[in-house]
Every structure is written in C-alpha cells, then in structure tokens.
Amino acid sequence: MARMKFYCDAERCIECNGCVTACKNENDVPWGVNRRRVVTIKDGEAGERSLSVACMHCSDAPCAAVCPVNCFYTTDDGLVLHDKDICIGCGYCFYACPFGAPQFPEDGAFASRGKMDKCTFCAGGPEEDNSAEERRKYGSNRLAEGKLPLCAEMCATKALLAGDASVISDIYRKRVVNRGASVLDWGVSYENASLRSSKGVQGKATMEE
C-alpha cells in the first residue's frame, strides 16, 4: 500500500509561496486559515533557506493521540484526515502538532475556535468522494481523481514533492547524489554541482536511467 508523503527540498525552495496560493485557491480555504506556509530561515543572510510546511501526515500523529473526541483517522494511503462533524474545536491538536498544521477559523465571540481545518493532502474528508458536502467542508479531493496535491504539482522548482514515500525518497536521493552530498563540503545546490561531472561520480545517480 502506498504511503503518501510530502518532502520539501530546502536547496530548491525559492520562497515564491506558489504552494500556499495554490492550496488556498484549490481548497477555498477561509480567511485566517493557512493549511500551508513557507518558512524562511536566515532571511536575507548568507545561508538563507526556505521550507514549505503543512500537515506532514505523521505515522504516529500527535493530533490524533490527544484529540478528546477521536475525530482523526488514517487512510489506506497513510493520510491523517479528520471528521469535521465530530471535531469540537478544542485546539488540543494545535498544541500537540509539531508543525503548526491545525488551523482554526474564528467562530463566535472572543475569537473562539471553530472546527479545525488542516491540509488533507488534497484528499477531502470522510464524505463521499467529490461530493458537494465534502467540497464545502474539506475542499478539493484530487487524490480521488488520480491527481497529487496541487501545492506540489504547482511547485515551479519542484522543491515540494508529494506522493508515494518510496518514490519521493528515490527522487530526493538522486538529487542528493547528483548535487554532491554536502557532508563532503562541496557546497550545496547548483553552485558546485557542475564540478562533479569531472570527478566521475555522476554515473552513480544516473545508472538506472
């Protein structure tokens, strides 16, 4: 069985926020809710890197563990989804999540929390696939149409990868080998990658193709 994963390649992400925009548009996400965000480390300094982050669909999901009403479930694809009909908007998943994925629309007085909203890996919710009800509550269900999440599909530099974990890790592994593992101090990214062809190591990554 496939196990769906996101991976963001920090050497490729250029902080264009295209994934954020794609997600908001595809899923009709309400104001104040951001299922995905791009975080930049050392912004404007040497060594600046960006990472796009959303729900990471954990194997041992903290949100599901602490939920007082047990509204989370893991799909056959390894996605952590939740049922908004069961969710009570307590915010415990938000405390427990390491990535800041659960979001809460403001609902009622004193900015009290409405029902939680988070990245669904463009896989909707427990309702019937691509039904109007599912669309209204969870946004798009691209997986049911055989497509991958739009954030990754739209990524201009292919920094954000989404799909079967083994495929994703293969792609990333090839990149690392081609790029030169930075542990060898060949630097990172594109700057020094071009030097590697002369050292006869390139074949390792491209042998399979």
């Binding site: 926020n17 954020v20 965000r37 975080v39 480390i41 982050v53 999540c97 390491p98 990535f99």
Partner: peptide, 20 residues
C-alpha cells in the same frame, strides 16, 4: 525561528517540540 509570509503567532516556527 524563521520568517513567514503567513501572518500569525509563531508562524515562523517550523518544529515545536514542546508539543510532544
């Protein structure tokens, strides 16, 4: 922590280990 275009409390924090 980092910076994010998404405005919000601690939106620049990538991993909040206290959650665990």
């Amino acid at each position: 922590g980092g910076d994010s275009q998404v405005q919000g409390v601690q939106s620049g924090v990538l991993i909040n280990q206290l959650g665990q």
